[in-house]
Design a protein around this nucleic acid. Structure first.
Lengths: 241, 241
DNA sequence: AGAGTGGATATTGGATCCAATTCCATTTGG
DNA sequence: CCAAATGGAATTGGATCCAATATCCACTCT
């Protein structure tokens, strides 16, 4: 059968939102990867995906190429595509990018934030307090951050930022099991929002930088520990039971 | 016929360096776009490209999707792909990204730079002094900057940096006509290298930031002026003879 | 018995074919 | 004479088909 998790829900959800099959497939797979439904190391069989999505292999291939360009999947010639799994080094790498991009986006955006933006950010914090599902938590976290950056007026900068924020969140979902992280993270979110409301650009940027650094520390620790536990957790389809 | 410029040289050059046709096509087109051989607004007919590259339309399509993910081309459903032309807003956008990434990369890399790196940077500055072709100039400029960032030990950060540095260079080639830019740019390059040699991280980062800002100013001015001159320079293939 | 080799199989890479959509030009009616 | 509709041509989007390559397993030879 298929070693893929059940994506019918995602498929049905994304299907009507796109005109071309390629865009639909790309969006669906990207969502699945970023929310962790498709874990790192998962082999992506073109035939399986085609059957699952109800299209032929061609849109699948185009979508996979796009995801490759976004560093979400990896092609091995004649051996197929796999979801890239993030190592501790990659985590530091992505964190460095966030560390560069997010304060810059925030500094550009902060002067143009409106009361509506602050209210939305408040709501998102409250939602995160109530949320327990790690997947939705990542989504909320991402939206909270992007709300604060949104007024930067730099579409490419924002797209890059969101992309890497999402890449980090993809593994941050494991962190939410580490209970104390959530409360501390929420404290930082509140402090960040307060600094934004006060118009304290330097302070807000410092908080964001610190926030990213802390998340990186936890993520790196988690990944290195997991790497010790299982050296080669997922190579090929190894359901030999 | 084809409205495309002569790419046979690029094709022959890249052809042996890749195993799969898709990767070859992607690299060739990317190179052509980044060096300005394919100008912004150029419509990319899949048939023409296929004939030019000596492959079928499918690798072309996959490559175009990758370039779309990298924001180098733009798809219009059922109307084809065009090379994205950079507006003054886009220039500011890309500049903001460079402004965020390059000082970060430099700060990480600087402590690990070796005498060999400095020597290579010296050579590249000398080469730029002697170079007159704008296309090769962009290449040298890119290599100079990347040499200084290369020891950051963050592959993704470096890839992003190079990508946006190249995107800027793509239009910076028009700047080199503006004579005084080159001498000033070279002065800044020398100052930057000196700061790196001295181990002055903060100073080097400041110089880079300033360098990027100045380039942005010139580029923005150029683009806005050109926008006034020709409002819609290239729409479709208008060779009705 | 173990290692190396050969073939069978599965999966991707690439080419060709067909349908759907858009754009352009011509034509026709007011 | 101009505007709107209609038909055709060109081009892309998607599906199917064929070839190339890597993996896996059985078999043989040392």
């Amino acid at each position: 059968m298929t070693a893929l998790p059940d994506l019918t829900r995602l498929v049905a959800d994304h299907r009507p939102r796109f005109r071309t099959a390629t865009e639909f497939v790309e969006a669906t797979l990207r969502h699945a990867i970023l929310t962790g439904v498709l874990a790192g190391g998962t082999p992506l069989r073109q035939d399986d995906l085609a059957a699952l999505m109800g299209v032929s292999r061609m849109p699948i291939r185009e979508a996979l190429r796009q995801l490759e360009a976004k560093a979400l999947v990896e092609f091995h010639p004649h051996r197929g595509a796999v979801v890239v799994s993030i190592t501790a080094e990659d985590a530091a790498d992505i964190s460095a990018i966030r560390h560069a991009l997010e304060p810059a986006a925030l500094a550009l955006s902060l002067p143009h934030l409106t009361p509506d933006d602050f209210a939305l950010a408040d709501d998102l914090i409250a939602d995160m307090d109530a949320e327990t599902d790690p997947g939705r938590m990542g989504e909320l976290n991402r939206r909270f951050h992007m709300t604060l950056y949104a007024r930067a007026g730099r579409p490419r900068l924002l797209a890059l930022t969101e992309q890497h924020l999402a890449a980090a969140d993809r593994y941050l979902r494991f962190q939410f099991a580490a209970l104390e992280y959530q409360t501390r993270s929420q404290d930082e979110h509140r402090a960040l929002l307060a600094a934004c409301r006060a118009g304290d650009t330097a302070g807000a940027c410092a908080i964001v930088a610190d926030h990213i650094g802390r998340a990186e520390g936890l993520l790196t620790a988690f990944l290195s520990e997991r790497a010790k536990g299982a050296d080669a957790p997922a190579r090929r389809g190894q359901n030999k039971t």
